[in-house]
Structures are given as C-alpha cells and as structure tokens.
C-alpha cells in the first residue's frame, strides 16, 4: 500500500515536471496554457492521492479530498478566464495554427449585425 502510494506520487511529480517543460518549450501562449494547466492539474491530483496513500496512518484523507475538489473546480476556470483575456487583447497565435474558431464566430456576428 505504501509502496504503491510512493510510486503514484512519483508518477504525479513526473507529470508536474513535463507540464513545466511544456510551459518552457511551446511556441505561443495558448499552447503554453494548455501544457501548464492540464498536465499540472493531473500531476497534482496524482501527487495528493499518492501522498494520502503513502501516509495512511495520518488522519488527513478528508482534507486532501477537499483540496482535490478545489483544484478540479478552480483550475479550469482560471485558465479559461486567462485564455479569454489573452485572445481579446490580441496576442498573436503561432505560425503553425490552422484554426481559430472564436475569431471566426466574432466575424460572423459582426456581419450579421450589419
């Protein structure tokens, strides 16, 4: 049980490291946001679960469940708000981008109003 918890913690920390590496190497801000939010969310959930399993003698399971719920609820919300703000202040996309649905929708709405 404790060895399994330690291994799950190790896998979670590797996810955290890969997320930070993707944050460093991706070409534009939206790709960076995807690497820096999704991978670190999964990594921290695995890290917390593994910690609760590796130290089964402490009475902290309830607090860790509440913390995981906090992370699941708040992390996508803040990343969504950031992505929306970055799109509206006009930060350019990377050169390889093939599709931008939000800009097409805005163009269509403007056309309809006219």
């Amino acid at each position: 049980m404790e060895l399994a918890g330690a291994i799950i913690t190790l896998i979670g920390s590797i996810f955290l490291f890969l997320g930070a590496l993707g944050l460093l190497r991706m070409p534009d801000i939206f790709n960076r946001m995807q690497a820096g939010t999704k991978a670190t969310t999964l990594g921290s959930i695995l890290f917390l679960t593994g910690s609760a399993m590796a130290h089964a003698e402490c009475t902290c399971t309830g607090k860790i469940v509440i913390l995981i719920l906090f992370i699941i609820f708040t992390n996508p919300l803040s990343s969504h708000a950031l992505a929306r703000a970055a799109h509206f202040i006009g930060i350019p996309l990377a050169k390889k981008t093939v599709k931008d649905d939000l800009a097409e929708d805005e163009k269509k709405e403007e056309g309809g109003q006219l």
Partner: peptide, 26 residues
C-alpha cells in the same frame, strides 16, 4: 515576452507549490 505569459507561469507555479506544501507536510 508578454505579461500574459508571466501570468500563466505564475498559475503553474501556484499549482506546483500546493503539491510541494503537501510534500513538506508529509
């Protein structure tokens, strides 16, 4: 290059440091 990149980095640092706090507590 822009301020938005720095905010994304701060967000990632926050999540990683929550994991680090749990590590220190253990």
């Amino acid at each position: 290059p822009t301020a938005a990149d720095r905010v994304v980095a701060l967000d990632a640092m926050t999540i990683i440091s929550i994991s680090l706090i749990i590590f220190l507590a253990a």
